[in-house]
């Protein structure tokens, strides 16, 4: 089950500087452990919905905003950024849905 293309993930927060960077580190770690090739970038709330990504990972408030208009195929809403298990579970579920 070799994957040809790495998945494209955007870690987004309001400004793209604080929580997005934090999420990016966590997301990269989780995907690497799961053996899923991925390119993870950060974006702010304005940029994120315009990116044609596979997955956007963000907080619940921005997720709600992005669902109206984002170009990404999946939006993952993380409530507790300190809970790696939550991030992992939601992220890997989204990856599975991509593979449909």
């Amino acid at each position: 089950m070799a994957r040809k293309q790495p998945i494209r993930v955007v870690a987004a927060c309001g400004l793209g500087t604080g929580t997005a960077l934090y999420l990016k580190m966590t997301v990269e770690e989780i995907l690497k452990k799961a053996g899923i090739p991925a390119v993870v970038e950060t974006a702010d709330a304005t940029l994120a919905p315009t990116i044609t990504a596979d997955i956007i990972v963000t907080g619940p408030d921005l997720a709600e905003m992005f669902r109206q208009r984002a170009r990404a195929r999946e939006i993952v809403a993380v409530t507790n950024y300190g809970n790696k298990a939550e991030i992992q579970e939601k992220l890997l579920a989204a990856v599975q849905r991509l593979e449909g």
């Binding site: 929580t19 408030d61 507790n80 950024y81």
Partner: peptide, 16 residues
């Protein structure tokens, strides 16, 4: 403007 997204874990917020 962007909502309370800076409250990122139970009881914790990171204003910036």
């Amino acid at each position: 403007e962007l909502g309370p997204y800076i409250a990122i874990a139970p009881g914790v917020a990171i204003p910036h």
